[in-house]
């Protein structure tokens, strides 16, 4: 069966959840970057399709060790979270709860910021994977820090140690982990099944 041009939002969420929750590895999040065409310029780009954030208790411990965000940075994050919560709850019709007022971890923040990002002309790790049709698997904080990609370097700064981008037909599936995760044929197989992608899993 050929891959659909676009996955529906509900289907996407189910696939992302199944992949992350069912994986042997500890993935912190999964994001599907959707290929689209800018109506004004005709340029193709990858934009936010959907994402699934899992996170771990372990992330918090690692943040403590790393020093975490400053108090000012935490206030900034909470402020943005309150605004976002207000937007999706109809201008503050529902009272903010602990989901808004509690500390925002580095990986949560990285995931939220991702919603604002897009990649044009093969830019960034997701764009490169889409442009070349070859998966990119970057393991280790040092390799992320040295990657020729702002997003990968930003990921490292927020405590991620592994980033994977796999082209899946109408976009790119990105996985991130605060653990060191080496290339896994098993997870590539799951992606192939769940996202119906038929490209080889090695460059």
């Amino acid at each position: 069966t050929p891959a659909p041009a676009y996955f529906s939002q509900e289907t996407l969420q189910q696939r992302l959840q199944a992949l992350i929750e069912g994986a042997r590895e500890s993935w912190t999040y999964g994001i599907f970057w959707q290929s689209s065409v800018d109506a004004a310029t005709g340029a193709s780009f990858l934009g936010w399709g959907d994402g699934y954030y899992k996170g771990y208790e372990e992330d918090k411990r690692k943040q403590r060790v790393a020093g975490a965000a400053s108090a000012a940075e935490q206030e900034h994050r909470k402020c943005v979270l309150r605004e976002l919560h207000s937007l999706i709850s109809g201008g503050g019709s529902s009272a903010p709860d602990e989901a808004v007022d509690e500390e925002v971890t580095d990986t949560e923040w990285f995931f939220l910021v991702s919603m604002t990002q897009s990649f044009v002309n093969g830019g960034g790790l997701p764009g490169q994977a889409f442009y070349t049709g070859a998966p990119a698997w970057v393991t280790g904080a040092d390799r992320l820090a040295a990657a020729p990609c702002d997003r990968a370097r930003q990921a490292q700064l927020f405590g991620l140690q592994t980033m994977v981008c796999v082209p899946v037909g109408s976009g790119v599936l990105e996985l991130g982990s605060t653990d060191v995760v080496f290339h896994s044929p098993e997870i590539m197989g799951k992606i192939r099944v769940l996202f119906n992608f038929s490209s080889p899993d090695a460059p």
């Binding site: 969420q13 954030y53 937007l87």
Partner: peptide
């Protein structure tokens, strides 16, 4: 107007729901 495209709106709603579940399960971060 709608300040958030539908995909991001749904993603954000899920993010907040999951965050609330995590916090309920493990307690406050601080």
């Amino acid at each position: 107007g709608d300040l958030l495209p539908m995909a991001r709106r749904k993603s954000l709603q899920r993010f907040f729901e999951k965050r609330k579940q995590r916090l309920t399960a493990v307690g406050p971060y601080t």
